[in-house]
């Protein structure tokens, strides 16, 4: 499977190109229709699947960028969001993927990744928080869990610990990686993650349009020659921006901060690297 297909999946702040949502959507809908046939995925199980997926994410993106001040900053922003999220009880983990590709990815159970390229593309703390909030929203809404539930329900599991069997666990994770991750999330889940992410941003106190401003700028920067996957294959950025725009009047009484200067201070080391867009 290509790294690109992989990316789509865990869903980038919609920064994913080439997503074929239909099949996955059908898969999810099929699972939902199954109703009583669905087997629940508990927290321990969700975290275990997420860990297995996280290893694949790290491997396919060339490892982690471990620049101490950047890791700390992303974790501070991420933790501030996580404790205000609808699932604050999860053990969230945040890391920077060692690539200049613009993207963000999450895995079930609380694993959240942002690429160094996406960090470079941000201009304010509210924008960084917007990307991370979108990923946290996927986790909080259980978008990947729905897929896992469907895959689990196809397994012959005798009891509540049956998922721990090496064979069963492997089939569920591999099914997730090979099927769901190559086809991406349903489009509705992406819009929902924007909606929930924007609500989390507002709850913490960042400017609710953080994700919107970043998406809008990325879309505007697209050129005919651009080979970036985001610009090349993700057709819905304009629609996402429009939908977020429709949400923002609901937050007009929320005074949000962008914290642009703090972002610049904390990411100063990035500015010294080639290609920084500050």
């Amino acid at each position: 499977m290509s790294a690109r297909g992989f990316v789509v999946v865990l869903c980038t702040a919609g920064l994913l190109p080439g997503c074929e949502f239909v099949n996955v959507h059908q898969l999810v809908e099929g699972g939902l229709r199954a109703g009583a046939m669905q087997l629940p995925v508990g927290p321990e199980e969700e975290i275990a699947y997420g860990g297995a997926v996280a290893v694949q994410v790290v491997a396919r993106y060339g490892g982690l960028d471990k620049t101490p001040e950047l890791v700390e900053y992303v974790n501070l922003v991420g933790e501030a969001l996580a404790i205000h999220s609808p699932r604050p009880e999860l053990p969230y983990h945040f890391a920077i993927l060692n690539t200049d590709e613009v993207n963000a990815v999450s895995a079930p159970g609380g694993y959240v990744f942002i690429t160094r390229g996406a960090l470079k593309a941000c201009r304010t703390e509210a924008e960084l928080a917007g990307i991370l909030a979108h990923e946290i929203a996927h986790i909080a809404a259980g978008h990947a869990v729905k897929i896992l539930q469907n895959l689990k329900s196809k397994q012959a599991i005798a009891d509540s610990t049956g998922w721990k069997s090496t064979a069963v666990f492997g089939q569920i994770v591999d099914g997730f990686l090979d099927d769901y991750m190559t086809k991406g999330l349903p489009q509705d889940d992406e819009f929902e993650a924007d909606r929930i992410g924007t609500a989390i941003l507002a709850r913490v106190g960042w400017a609710p349009d953080g994700l919107r401003t970043l998406l809008s700028r990325l879309a505007a920067g697209r050129t005919a020659e651009s080979k970036d996957r985001f610009y090349g294959t993700h057709p819905d950025t304009g629609a996402r921006v429009s939908r977020i725009d429709a949400l923002l009047p609901g937050y007009k009484d929320k005074d949000g901060v962008t914290l642009e200067l703090r972002f610049r201070d904390r990411t100063a080391s990035l500015a010294k690297r080639v290609g920084h867009v500050h």
Partner: peptide, 14 residues
């Protein structure tokens, strides 16, 4: 809202 993630309510950050 639809969806809802896992079913756990215990704090699992440890």
């Amino acid at each position: 809202a639809r969806g809802g993630g896992g079913s756990g309510v215990a704090y699992t950050a440890g």
